[in-house]
Design a protein around this nucleic acid. Structure first.
Lengths: 224, 224
DNA sequence: GCAAAAGTGTTATCCCTACACCCATGA
DNA sequence: TCATGGGTGTAGGGATAACACTTTTGC
């Protein structure tokens, strides 16, 4: 206990915070944790925490995400670095923020040490947020919507296999508009990113659908 | 002198570094400073330095840029945050990087305290660089080229007034390809971002050119 | 008068959009 | 047989790309 690490000049603390998006019930949701300690105790905040001294930034984001929510192995991308001098009331904190996309079948929340609770919220119905986390979320949402139009980032929301109807639903939810079925199929197939698995999806009282999968599940391609 | 600032956990140092681009002699150039002190003494590096404890990140980038090169009042945008644990041989350093665009008539270099020297280099002919600065430059260049296609960022290279021929040259240099004069003029005028000043540019042994200016010199608009 | 850049419209092509009907299945 | 989502092609419109000649000036 105490003050073991000394420097010639004052230093800010460095944290990472992650905006985790998923799609559930045809809605874009994001993950918040309820803070278990001050400041902003009992308020909702983004999962995140302090950088270990020998830890890569992205590794820190992944670690905090897993520790606080149990989520791992998802798409993660650096968003922006926030460093307003007074964004944390305790002291100077620089936050390197990331955003993550989680397939809808991959959600398995578990609260833990730092987080009294964790839950998914619709973007339109967010609670009051700690720090400048509202601003971070707004930026992450803008980036996600922008990337929809010039990359294959939306595929990161899909499970391993899916039908074209399910994929179209995802795009419709994210873009918040209905799309023409024929045009969507022509376009998405022309990208050359998905292929038929050969299997059929026989759920529901209607004609079975072809099941597709990604050719490169890990890669997010730039299109256009 | 000594170790006045103590913390319970070790903390990384935080710096900002800036990739400054300009256009000169029909070439994209960037600004490097020669390091005056270890590590990497006498090697070339990006202008930048340590964050003051009460200073905003962007303010730090601006301050270091002015201190080391005399450049101020230019377009500045956050690029990415680099934090590999061993990117600085002395200790853990997080670098929040920015890139800046300088109009070609606005270049007025002056070396100073931290920088033994400063100079412009073509991207194809960079010297060996300190730290991971080559990686930072590569990313900045990619970002700049990408933004050309969906924003008016190229205008930030222009002086207050300019001709359409000069503007086309800028686009040709940045995109590294020749453009059709008529199509370029139709396109650039259709953006609605520039207007005639009414003056004519009578230099050279050829027909005088209309002089244009930006309607909103500060704003970078998203187009498309 | 000649070299050098300024200035100016039309046509063809491609891509995106709009649009309607049959199919396979479960209940 | 009916309700439900799956699956398919074509035609029109708008934007982009290709293309050549005249103008004004300095030397």
């Amino acid at each position: 206990m105490g003050t073991q690490y000394s420097y010639q000049y004052p230093r800010p603390a460095v944290t990472t915070d992650v905006v985790v998006f998923t799609l559930r019930d045809q809605q874009l949701k994001l993950l918040l944790v309820k803070r278990g300690r001050p400041p902003f105790v009992d308020m909702w905040a983004l999962p995140g925490g302090f950088l270990d001294i020998d830890e890569d930034l992205e590794a820190c984001a992944k670690r905090e995400l897993e520790e606080e929510t149990g989520i791992r192995g998802v798409y993660l991308e650096q968003l922006y670095t926030f460093g307003q001098p007074n964004r944390d009331p305790r002291e100077r904190v620089i936050s390197v923020t990331y955003y993550a996309l989680v397939p809808s079948d991959h959600i398995d929340l578990r609260a833990s040490s730092d987080a009294a609770d964790a839950d998914w919220f619709s973007l339109g119905q967010l609670p009051a947020l700690a720090f400048d986390h509202q601003e971070i979320i707004t930026l992450a949402h803008q980036r996600l919507v922008a990337k929809l139009h010039y990359s294959t980032i939306a595929f990161q929301f899909m499970p391993e296999t899916f039908t074209l109807g399910e994929l179209q639903k995802v795009y419709e939810t994210l873009r918040n508009e209905e799309l023409d079925k024929r045009n969507f199929r022509k376009w998405i197939l022309s990208l050359g990113q998905i292929e038929k698995s050969g299997e059929l999806c026989k759920t529901g009282n209607h004609r079975p659908a072809q099941i597709y999968r990604l050719k490169n599940p890990e890669r997010v391609e730039i299109i256009k």
